[in-house]
């Protein structure tokens, strides 16, 4: 009981968070029951027919589901890896800039695309890579044949992944930079004294120092393994690239073409949630076992 008394302030601190979470995060979860129902808005949650696993079966057995699942995994995993690597490199490079105003400028510029939504960016990128756009203009001036980027499966995937990494790199970069500033500067000074060059310092001080944050970002990123970028792909895709770029979310979105499919949509959402939770749990415990590090 003594420990409880000592810990009481901690429990109290958690109360507001718990209340808000219970009401606004767990409350709506009751709606997940839609995944098991033939949901009709007019009947609501209580009167819609219960159909068990039917919704899941329906979606999983649609002919293109395998293709769509594969696309989702490929795109999501590539994005995940790059969204860690690229910001990391940028953060390390930016850290070497000494003039504060210059560093600030670069940081702001890199973060800017984060503000644009895909409804706008989608059109801009399509134009950028169109036959009459600047990229093909460059290619033509180099004497090569123009390429229909957005109509080719492999190019399109590359553009999707690249543009998403570009748009979001500012976000992760800022987090990593904040982590870098948190590293004790005396460590660097000590290393200098010991004769370590900049490169060695990065390797032995900076990277280990921010490894908790990197692991955190990586693990949480893994939770998004089935989220390949719905809004982005919806804005930019077209029937010619369905084969390589149709993902679970866009596929399910079009299923609702003739009539809202609340049940199947909820089922797919639930499926994705379960997989995310699974992935994060495994990596959480792996990080704990091997590094004695709890991500949260």
């Amino acid at each position: 009981m003594k420990s409880l008394k000592k810990e009481l302030p901690l429990h109290i601190m958690l109360i507001p968070g718990v209340i808000v979470t219970l009401i606004y995060a767990y409350g709506p979860m009751a709606g997940l029951v839609m995944a098991f129902q033939q949901f009709e808005p007019l009947s609501g949650f209580f009167k819609s027919e219960f159909v068990g696993w039917d919704n899941f079966n329906y979606v999983f057995h649609l002919p293109d589901f395998k293709q769509v699942l594969w696309n989702t995994l490929v795109i999501a995993i590539t994005k995940m890896v790059l969204s860690l690597l690229v910001p990391l490199i940028l953060a390390l490079l930016l850290n070497e800039i000494t003039r504060k105003w210059f560093a600030g400028f670069i940081q702001s510029a890199i973060f800017l695309p984060f503000f644009l939504s895909w409804t706008v960016l989608g059109g801009v990128i399509i134009e950028l890579f169109s036959l009459s756009g600047p990229i093909n203009g460059l290619i033509a001036s180099l004497g090569m044949e123009p390429i229909m980027f957005m109509l080719d499966n492999s190019w399109f995937r590359g553009i999707i992944i690249g543009s998403d990494v570009w748009k979001g790199m500012g976000y992760n970069m800022i987090i990593m930079l904040a982590a870098i500033t948190g590293i004790n500067s005396t460590l660097y000074e000590a290393a200098e004294v010991d004769g370590a060059g900049k490169w060695k310092q990065v390797l032995h001080i900076t990277l280990p120092g921010i490894s908790p944050i990197i692991i955190l970002l990586a693990v949480l990123g893994l939770g998004g393994i089935l989220n390949a970028g719905f809004e982005q792909i919806l804005m930019m895709y077209n029937p010619t690239v369905y084969e390589g770029a149709d993902i679970i979310d866009t596929f399910v979105y079009r299923l609702g073409m003739f009539s809202q499919q609340f049940g199947p949509a909820a089922a797919v959402g639930l499926f994705k949630s379960v997989i995310s939770l699974f992935m994060v749990s495994i990596t959480y415990y792996a990080a704990y076992k091997f590094n004695d590090y709890r991500i949260f």
């Binding site: 329906y58 002919p63 293109d64 077209n238 029937p239 010619t240 079009r254 073409m257 009539s259 499919q261």
Partner: peptide, 23 residues
């Protein structure tokens, strides 16, 4: 209103048509 199969398979059939015709 669309018939039950149109609701169920419509999206898939439309995808098929768009892909085939465009190609």
């Amino acid at each position: 209103l669309p018939t039950p199969t149109i609701v169920e398979k419509g999206g898939q059939l439309d995808k098929l048509m768009q892909e085939s015709f465009t190609k």
